[in-house]
Amino acid sequence: MSMNYTFSFKNNSFLYQFFEGAKDTFPLVVGAVPFGIIFGTLAATAGLSSWATMGMSMFVFAGSSQFVAVSLVFAGTAWPMIVLTTFVVNLRHMLYGATMVPFYKHLSPFWKIVLAFGLTDETFAVSVNRYSRKDGVTGKRYYNLGSMVFMYTNWNLCTFIGLTAGKAFPGISRWGLDFAMPATFIGMVIPYLVTKPMWASVVTAGTVSILAAGLPHKLGLMAAAIAGVIVGLVCEKIFCNKEELI
């Protein structure tokens, strides 16, 4: 963390940007610590093998869908259904990808593959802010990479700790550390709440998420997100003056 102070990186050098990305992701990494640990403990108590638990964090790298998968494994669900549910739960990431298209346009296929793999809620939120700042800095992909590498390392480390702890203390999954996810996400939503259309969008998404909670396979999440986006766009039209739009 403090490396960019101990070494004198040229400002905006690639290494400097890498550590800037990691630094700006730090609060989200802190939020992901209990989340990752609880995932490891839940997986251990749900009967998932250590191999499959670590494999999920290493190759899937998508927190909420990993939680859903563990609960489905516990309920004895067949693997094709778990994969399908993962698809639905993670469908929102397609919209993250769409948002990144203009920023990744000039990158090599290798960079696109690496950065797309790490497009989690957290890294997306942090990186999109950096890309959107029009300060003429080049090589923002290193900022994105720094955020992603920090999240990835932490997520796998915490999964491993949780897995070990879950085997040692089987009761740990009932401590309620699962509040870490909503706490982190609330902190991430608040900075967005500066315009009326954004407020309307968020209130709508929250309301629909409750009304549609009974829908199977987490489809309520998609319904709520789509409703939120539509209401946001409609409100943009209604409050159509410049200061309402950012």
Partner: peptide
Amino acid sequence: RGLKYVPPAVLTAIIVPSVLM
């Protein structure tokens, strides 16, 4: 234009049920 509403809307749709239910 709709894309900028995606992150807060999705995150809120995850937060609200996990808090109220």
